[in-house]
């Protein structure tokens, strides 16, 4: 794969940043929600979907993206946002509902929008697919070689919006990559009880486009596959589906009792943590030498701490601000 050492280090730092971020948000989310859990209470109210364990999906593809490439994320967006370079201070302030947030508190954690890096979200399953097709279509019509990446969960591939979008992108040879983050679970429903056919990536054949399956949450394998998919998209040769076998280390949302999950499943997945595995790869390849990893990890921690402090210190919007931004 054709990535500079700096970019590989960036990937490691982004993964660590995303992990620390999710663990930190998980803690803060519980502030004001104990002893009795109330979703409406506390520092961060509302639903909270965290992505610890899914970091490879984020950096594996975003490693090749520029600010002008579009990314559409679903309800579980933080890791992808971090890898796409969304301003972490503003993003965190948004998640806290503060005036200094990306959207001044109007969107919250499921609706993160950052124009500077062309990042958007939808909390409606699979509804990021259409806009990704539109972003790629615009690039083509405007003669740019920018591409679009649509992130969806494996549960979302059973939604019409996914199929219609893959078909359209394939039909018009648009530069879209559909990244299916296959963490096995759509809330409480397992992939096997929801998706017919052996593999989601196999569905690509039906549209005459490449479909790639990445086993075992493997960052390096994904980096290699994504490089090809991104090149294909930039060349104007059309879309690719990449299904990544990934791991969900937390509940569907925070507060999920996860009674549907087999005993020991999570523990076994944690044994396969993709972050130390990627670190080992970088050490073996000579990318990380003495003290490099620690330095990157410290930087990640600092970035998160800084963003959280910024969000905490920021003011809430004025109540009447609710009435603004309905139209431009």
């Amino acid at each position: 794969m054709n990535l500079s050492e700096d970019r590989l280090k960036w990937a490691y730092r982004a993964m660590v940043t995303a992990r620390i971020y999710e663990e930190t948000i998980a803690e803060i989310y519980m502030e004001g929600k104990t002893p009795k859990f109330d979703i409406a209470a506390g520092t961060i109210p509302g639903e909270m979907h965290l992505a610890a364990g899914q970091e490879p999906c984020a950096v594996g593809v975003c490693a090749y993206l520029r600010d002008s490439d579009a990314v559409t994320a679903p309800h579980r967006p933080h890791h992808v946002a971090i890898a796409k370079g969304v301003d972490l201070r503003k993003m965190t302030a948004e998640i806290f509902g503060k005036k200094t947030g990306l959207s001044h508190g109007k969107g919250g954690h499921m609706h993160l929008f950052d124009r500077d890096v062309n990042f958007t979200c939808s909390g409606i399953v699979a509804q990021g697919c259409g806009p990704a097709v539109g972003a790629a279509l615009s690039a083509k019509m405007q003669g740019r070689d920018d591409i679009a990446v649509s992130y969806v969960g494996e549960g979302a591939v059973n939604q019409g919006g996914f199929h219609e979008s893959v078909n359209l992108a394939a039909l018009w040879d648009l530069g879209v990559i559909f990244v299916v983050e296959d963490n096995d679970w759509a809330i409480s429903v397992h992939r096997k009880d929801a998706a017919a056919g052996p593999r989601i990536a196999d569905r690509a054949a039906g549209y005459g486009i490449p479909g790639v399956y990445i086993e075992d949450n493997d960052t390096v394998a994904l980096l290699k596959a994504a490089e090809e998919a991104v090149d294909r998209a930039r060349r104007g040769d059309g879309p690719t589906i990449i299904q990544v076998e990934t791991y969900r280390y937390m509940g569907h949302f925070q507060g999920d009792a996860e009674g549907y999950r087999p005993d020991g499943e999570k523990e076994a997945l944690k044994e396969r943590d993709p972050i130390p595995r990627f670190k080992q790869y970088l050490v073996d390849e000579g990318v990380l030498a003495n003290g490099d990893a620690e330095k990157l990890e410290a930087e990640a921690q600092e970035t998160v701490d800084d963003a959280i402090a910024f969000a905490r210190e920021s003011e809430f919007p004025e109540p009447e601000d609710a009435l603004t931004h309905v139209f431009v």
């Binding site: 109210p45 509302g46 948004e94 509902g97 503060k98 947030g101 001044h104 508190g105 109007k106 969107g107 919250g108 954690h109 609706h111 809430f316 919007p317 004025e318 109540p319 009447e320 601000d321 609710a322 009435l323 309905v326």
Partner: peptide
């Protein structure tokens, strides 16, 4: 409810 999409932030939502 005023004719606005429902905002996330608590003070905004409670106002509306």
């Amino acid at each position: 409810y005023p004719d606005i999409p429902i905002p996330f932030s608590r003070p905004l939502e409670q106002f509306a």
